[in-house]
């Protein structure tokens, strides 16, 4: 009996990670974009585009790597649209981002419905995709009781997400191009005057960041085994990622922790009932919390973080020139 209860905890921990790592991709991607000074509100749409094309190409070629690549490229292509419009053509970032969301969701459903009408690929029919997405245990760590199986026995995209987040932290904080990128986001005029090619930095990092979001979208599709329905696979994760960027204070390494926190609420919503059933004395109240509160919590917490950090006025990782276009002739 006691073992069963611990099993519930393990399943719960496993659920937090496996269903919420796409948030980490979205967040790290958005941090990359925002560090260049661009506020891209198109995360939801970009993830949707990455999801649908990644899934279709991955299945049709029966190759997980090609799926990941396609997700990346599809996302990066959306990023290119954003970059052309906001960096070269000086369009408003908020408007362009919101349009990208509408457009991306439109593409997702248009392509999805079209493919569904012909024949929809089911993930289980594609052995390489199915096996490639299977869990791989980390030797040693996965043997830790209770948490080992929950945290260290996951599919390859979970590990990739964590590696990307850590690599991005290292890139931003420990390399020269990362330093220059941050300079572009803080003060593009000053960066330009010391010889940094502002446009090139913005283009590259917008596309890179959006590509990472696209991979996150692909992951969402795999999580659902690709079953296509009337609601989008991304299901608001893109917007949570925008919030998570703030919660993580624009720090990709902190985003891992933030993903875990937001994922915790998300998982409580889905399987809080099983925790309540396993520990009726201590956690029984979990069953009575309305699920919408869990859904709203990431946004409530982020709103509080925003307000508190603006009151404290220091230590915020928000790039100073976030959301402002850079027009060289106006320097």
């Amino acid at each position: 009996m006691e073992m069963d209860k611990l099993g519930v905890v393990t399943t719960f921990l496993h659920g937090i990670v496996v269903y919420n790592i796409p948030l980490l991709y979205g967040t790290v991607g958005e941090i990359t974009v925002e560090k260049s000074g661009s506020l891209n509100l198109g995360v939801e749409g970009i993830m949707a585009v990455g999801a649908i094309f990644g899934y279709l190409v991955g299945c049709w070629t029966n190759n997980l790597l090609l799926g990941i690549l396609t997700g990346f490229l599809a996302g990066a292509l959306c990023g290119l649209i954003f970059a052309v419009l906001t960096v070269s053509l000086q369009a408003n970032q908020n408007i362009t981002g919101l349009t990208l969301t509408t457009f991306g969701l439109g593409v997702y459903f248009f392509v999805g419905n079209g493919v569904k009408a012909v024949s929809w690929p089911a993930m289980n029919d594609y052995s390489s995709i199915k096996n490639g997405f299977a869990d791989l245990a980390v030797p040693g760590l996965s043997q830790i009781p209770v948490i080992g199986q929950g945290l260290f026995n996951h599919n390859i995209l979970v590990y990739l997400g964590v590696v990307i987040a850590l690599a991005m932290w290292w890139y931003l904080n420990r390399t020269t191009p990362g330093l220059r990128l941050r300079a572009v986001g803080e003060n593009p005029g000053a960066a330009d005057s010391v010889g940094i090619n502002v446009k090139r930095y913005k283009y590259l990092h917008i596309c890179l960041g959006c590509g990472i979001m696209g991979v996150g979208g692909y992951y969402m599709g795999l999580n659902m085994s690709g079953s296509f329905s009337s609601s989008c696979w991304i299901n608001g994760y893109g917007w949570i990622a925008v919030a998570l960027v703030i919660f993580a204070n624009w720090n990709p390494a902190l985003a891992i922790l933030g993903t875990f926190v937001f994922g915790f609420f998300n998982t409580l919503r889905v399987s809080g009932g099983s925790l309540a059933a396993a520990f009726p004395d201590t956690l029984g109240w979990l069953g009575t919390v309305p699920s919408q509160l869990y859904q709203a919590l990431p946004f409530i917490i982020t709103a509080i973080v925003l307000v508190v950090s603006s009151i404290r006025q220091k230590g915020s990782g928000q790039p100073a020139a976030l959301g402002l276009n850079y027009f060289r002739e106006e320097r």
Binding site: I95, T99, L100, T102, F103, G104, L105, G106, V107, Y108, F109, F110, N113
Partner: peptide, 11 residues
């Protein structure tokens, strides 16, 4: 969804 895409492209 076509209208969403079209609206996006127009914008």
């Amino acid at each position: 969804s076509f209208a969403d895409m079209l609206q996006g492209a127009i914008l």
